[in-house]
Each structure stands twice: as C-alpha cells, then as structure tokens.
C-alpha cells in the first residue's frame, strides 16, 4: 500500500532544487515512477513529498548541441520516446537497440532514461551503455548551478550516485560517434533485467583498432570499464583472437556479486562470451561490414 504523499510541480530545475533543499530526506525526485513507486508500494521507501520534474518545461526534448557534435536528451524524455525518435535513429542508433530490449513496453512508456540512471539499480541497461559511450556526461542542476558529471564518477555504489540531495539530473549528453567507430550492446537476460551486459565502442582505421571502450554491467553494484581489455586491443587487427584475449581480460577484471540473476562464476563466463560478441559486432559496424 502506498502511503499518502504530496506531489510538488516545479516549473524550473531551480524550483525543484529549492524543494529538495526544503524537504531534505522527506522528498525525492519523481519522473516516470517505474522504479520509485514500486519500492514505495513495497514499503521499502517512504517519502512524504515527491517532486514531479515532468512539469519542468525544457527537459522534454532531444536535440543536437555542441555545434551538432552531441545529443542532448532531456531528463523527462521516456525510454519509449528515445526508442521511436528519428533524431536518435539518425545519430545514435545503438541507443534504440538498447531501449528496444529494456524491461517491457509499459515500463518504457512511463520510465525515463534519466530516472533509470539516477535510481542506479545495479542491473541497469543504460548505465552500462553510458559508461562505455565515449565522452558521455550527465548534467546535474541545483540552486548552486549546473555541472557535468562523467558516468564513472556518477555511479558510486548500489543505488548511490554522485547526485547531491538538492540536485536533479536535467540532461544526458552523448557525443555523436566519429566515422570509423562502431558500437554494440549485448546482454543475457533471464528475468526482466540483464544477468550481465556488455557495451563496446570500437574504432577501426584500415585494419587496425584505434580505440576501444568496453563497459560491463549487472555484475556488481556499478558497471565497470574493462580498461586492461581496451588497452590490449589497441593496434591489433580486428579478429577473433584479440577479442577472445580481451574478453578474458574483461572477465578477470570483474569482481562479480552473486545474486538472483546468477552466481559469480556464471556471471564471469557470461562476461567472456558477451564481450567477445560485442567486440565482434562493434568492429564489424566500424568497418561497415554490418550497418546498425
């Protein structure tokens, strides 16, 4: 049973921040409610005040920014709006691929990308994708100003982020991928959320790998970058052998936590398989063998 609460409807991020300052721990930010209302209904969270950020006007759009070099996705944009956006299809098709497989259509219709990131559930699809996305950042706004936070600074622990109590996430910034870079997102799902997920971004020039970004999600409290695996790939020729070696390195770098989605060893094996698959597909897309 939901306990009674008051809904506040600020018009600007600053007003939302003022409300968060005023009510402190008795208040939280509410957008889609697909995560928050579930835990509130189960009696696992209780807030007397919900700050509905959907009434803030300029956080509902997806547009190009930074001289058309990046996408700015407003914090009130739902998963479904991203999935069906022609802007996203043209500039960041990987996001559509990720969104299509996120939870179910009911969740995607109500839930927002920013809400998913801020809730920081350890099995978040967007968290892993953003963690690997070259140059991605999150815009946090409060009465103190606006700041950009990188994903690896943002995700601190299970359900914990660098967002301060009086801040709201106002946008997600995703730079467009340069020519010659391919991306892929692979996951294994038994329940509603992934057991393990891997996002990979690979740049190939001629027959040489120029850069690799790999992030592994759902394995522990927060996604991690497989940096040793990334470094091993630099200067290599795309192919099964370097991908297997990198996948092994990504699996050894993991510190898996066994949970309802899989044991430690099960997750480690999935990292090996999914990393190899994601690297393979990302590099094929980079070389134009496969189009996303």
């Amino acid at each position: 049973m939901l306990k009674p609460f008051v809904i506040h409807e600020p018009r600007t991020p600053q007003q939302a921040s003022e409300l968060l300052n005023e009510y402190g721990w008795d208040a939280t930010v509410y957008a889609g409610g697909t995560e928050l209302l579930v835990v509130m209904k189960e009696g696992l969270a209780s807030y007397a005040h919900l700050i509905n950020i959907k009434t803030i006007s300029d956080i509902h759009t997806i547009h190009l920014t930074d001289n058309d070099a990046a996408l700015r996705i407003g914090a009130a944009v739902t998963h479904r709006a991203i999935e069906t956006s022609s802007m996203i299809a043209a500039h960041a098709p990987l996001l559509i691929e990720m969104e299509r497989s996120l939870a179910n259509v009911r969740v995607r219709t109500m839930g927002t990308l920013a809400g998913n990131l801020c809730f920081a559930e350890p099995h978040s699809d967007p968290a892993a994708v953003c963690m690997a996305w070259p140059g991605a950042s999150f815009e946090l706004t409060s009465t103190d100003g606006v700041r950009q936070v990188l994903p690896d600074e943002f995700f601190i622990d299970l359900f914990m982020t660098a967002r301060q109590e009086n801040e709201i996430m106002t946008a997600i910034h995703l730079p467009l991928l340069p020519p010659g870079m391919g991306s892929a997102y692979h996951k294994f799902v038994l329940l509603e959320r992934p057991s393990v997920s891997v996002a990979a971004f690979v740049s190939v020039a001629g027959t040489t790998i120029k850069s690799a970004h790999i992030a592994v999600g759902s394995v522990g409290p927060v996604p991690y970058r497989a940096t040793a695996a990334e470094n091993m790939l630099l200067g290599q020729t795309p192919g099964d052998e370097p991908y297997r070696a990198a996948a092994e390195a990504a699996a050894s770098a993991a510190d898996p936590v066994g949970d309802l989605y899989g044991s430690v060893e099960y997750k480690r094996q999935l990292i090996r398989v999914l990393t190899r698959q994601a690297l393979q597909q990302a590099s094929e897309r980079a070389m134009g063998v496969e189009r996303l």
């Binding site: 696992l44 622990d157 299970l158 914990m160």
Partner: peptide, 17 residues
C-alpha cells in the same frame, strides 16, 4: 521479504557499505 529482491538480491554490497 521484498527487501531480499531489491537490487536483484545484491545485498552483500549493502553489508559492505
């Protein structure tokens, strides 16, 4: 109870925290 399901049961992290 329901708490055991939260975070997919990644409750070890909570104990560490």
């Amino acid at each position: 109870g329901r708490l055991a399901q939260v975070g997919g049961g990644m409750i070890q992290s909570v104990s560490k925290f």
